[in-house]
Amino acid sequence: MASKVLRTFGKFQHATCLEKGPAALLPESYKKFYREWKLTTPTAVHYTPEDGRWKRNEVTGEVSPVQNIPIPVFFPKESDDQLWGGEGVVQGFQQRSHLSRRVPHFWIPMLKRSVVYSEVLDKYISVVVTDRALRLINAHYGFDHYILKTPACDLQSLLAVSLKRKILQDLQNGCPSYAERPDKQKDVLDQYKKYLDAYTPEEIEWYGYSLAQAVSKFKVQQEKEKEESTVPFKQIFRAQLIEKLKAASLDESNNQMKELEEGNSATSWLSKINPFSKKQET
């Protein structure tokens, strides 16, 4: 199994890019994905790791320690838009004849353009792949199973993890691509919905973004929340003015009612003592 890489110097652990700068404010859901993507040791592709701590030479009987030292692999920028299946560019030296000196050499994966089909998205995707990526897709019995089962550190490319987020979101929303075919929609959900158990809705939302994309997304969300929580002064003053007008209107109506009541009582009292007023006939 893949193990987390510890960036340490002596007894002190170095702070990663997630613990300083704007990335430190990102939600834990994204940090979990980034650790899986960039800070986890991927599956060995360019060498075969040996088990155990010691090994014995079958010819000489000499015992030596097992040293599984990963081969440095370089992933160019173009690989983020392709599916290399964990392969990368290996830099080393090559001795082309026993009489010549060794010279620098780059081993580059064999690339080809192919078409893969996503059953969840119901789309054909034209993409540059390697033979190993095609073998892995066939070994997992489909592109969706390969993408959903493989951890981000082995998918490696930004295109692959972005497709994984899109597939998970479509599964979460009930496969809208099959909205007009309910029977097919049910079959696809029954086949792939088990992959949703490993993620929360927030983890799916933040899955598959680069660090720069995640920081931009977080800033947009913060600005949106700030706009929603901040009420403009004109709205506050308008509400206060309306309340004052309502209160003034209510006081004015109360005063008018009071004056009317006082006027009616005074009229009735004067009518009793006025001898010239007409009396109602009984």
Rank of each mutant, 00 (worst) to 15 (best):
G142R: 03
F143G: 03
L163M: 15
N138D: 12
L148A: 10
L158W: 14
Y146S: 01
R135P: 00
A133L: 01
L168F: 12
I147V: 15
D154K: 07
F143I: 04
L158G: 15
I147Q: 02
L158C: 11
I137N: 02
K164R: 15
A133V: 03
L159C: 07
Q156N: 11
C153N: 11
D154F: 10
G142T: 07
G142E: 02
D144P: 13
A139C: 05
I147H: 04
L168H: 14
K149A: 13
R132D: 01
Q156M: 03
V161Q: 03
H140C: 13
D144C: 06
D144V: 10
K149L: 12
Q156P: 00
R165V: 12
L134T: 06
Y146W: 15
I147D: 01
R135T: 01
H140N: 13
K164V: 11
S157R: 10
L158H: 15
K149N: 13
G142W: 04
P151L: 04
S162M: 14
D131R: 09
G142P: 08
H140V: 01
L134V: 05
H145P: 00
I147G: 01
R135S: 06
L159V: 11
F143R: 04
A160F: 12
D131C: 00
R165N: 15
L148R: 13
Q156A: 02
I137G: 01
K149C: 10
